[in-house]
Amino acid sequence: MDARDVIKIGMSAERTLVVPPERTVGHFVRGMPMVYATPMMILEMEMASGDAINAHLEPGWVTLGTEVDVRHLAATPVGTKVRTTARVIAVERRVIRFEVEAFNDQRRIGEGRHARGLVNVEAFMKRLGMG
């Protein structure tokens, strides 16, 4: 499968969540503030990126995150609504590149780039000795 045949620049998706305690840095690291953890923000950015393109992939194909270049700009406490967006900005044969952003009620809290690699699940699992 060639991603250029089915994925188009500008495809996008948005996710929202209310920050729960289990997605805070304080949940993972004792003594730290109960604010939205950077890895959890990146997770939502990756999920939004997948959401933007998954419906267009052929059966048996998925994308896996391969690159992350993200800045976390502002702290967001538990109970705050966060909106995360992803937009396709480049498509190569097996790599899809995204611009990602996250916002709370007041401002942009994260921004950056993310890339996902196109993978045939069956071949991937065989290569790992799992199929």
Results as ranks from 00 to 15, higher is better:
residue 58 E to I: 06
residue 49 S to W: 12
residue 57 L to W: 03
residue 51 D to W: 05
residue 71 R to F: 00
residue 79 G to R: 12
residue 31 G to C: 10
residue 28 F to W: 07
residue 63 T to K: 11
residue 5 D to T: 06
residue 63 T to M: 10
residue 77 P to K: 03
residue 18 V to W: 03
residue 18 V to C: 04
residue 103 F to N: 06
residue 43 L to H: 05
residue 10 G to D: 12
residue 120 N to C: 08
residue 94 R to N: 11
residue 76 T to K: 00
residue 115 A to C: 09
residue 33 P to F: 13
residue 92 E to Q: 01
residue 106 Q to V: 08
residue 67 E to C: 07
residue 103 F to D: 06
residue 95 V to L: 04
residue 30 R to Y: 06
residue 49 S to K: 14
residue 53 I to N: 04
residue 74 A to H: 14
residue 56 H to A: 07
residue 127 R to Y: 01
residue 32 M to C: 07
residue 46 E to W: 08
residue 112 G to D: 05
residue 78 V to K: 15
residue 89 I to V: 15
residue 72 H to D: 05
residue 122 E to I: 00
residue 23 R to H: 05
residue 119 V to E: 06
residue 71 R to Q: 12
residue 62 V to G: 00
residue 86 A to E: 02
residue 96 I to V: 15
residue 95 V to E: 06
residue 67 E to N: 10
residue 23 R to M: 12
residue 99 E to Q: 14
residue 91 V to P: 08
residue 109 I to Q: 02
residue 86 A to N: 08
residue 47 M to G: 13
residue 104 N to H: 03
residue 10 G to P: 07
residue 105 D to S: 11
residue 6 V to Q: 04
residue 18 V to M: 02
residue 27 H to W: 08
residue 4 R to K: 04
residue 27 H to E: 05
residue 119 V to Q: 15
residue 109 I to D: 04
residue 127 R to E: 01
residue 122 E to Y: 08
residue 64 L to A: 08
residue 108 R to P: 02
residue 62 V to H: 01
residue 84 T to V: 15
residue 87 R to A: 07
residue 96 I to S: 02
residue 25 V to S: 12
residue 24 T to I: 03
residue 110 G to L: 01
residue 126 K to L: 11
residue 101 E to T: 13
residue 94 R to W: 06
residue 11 M to N: 02
residue 9 I to H: 12
residue 109 I to F: 11
residue 86 A to M: 09
residue 112 G to E: 08
residue 76 T to W: 11
residue 66 T to D: 00
residue 67 E to V: 09
residue 15 R to T: 15
residue 33 P to Y: 10
residue 83 R to D: 12
residue 10 G to T: 05
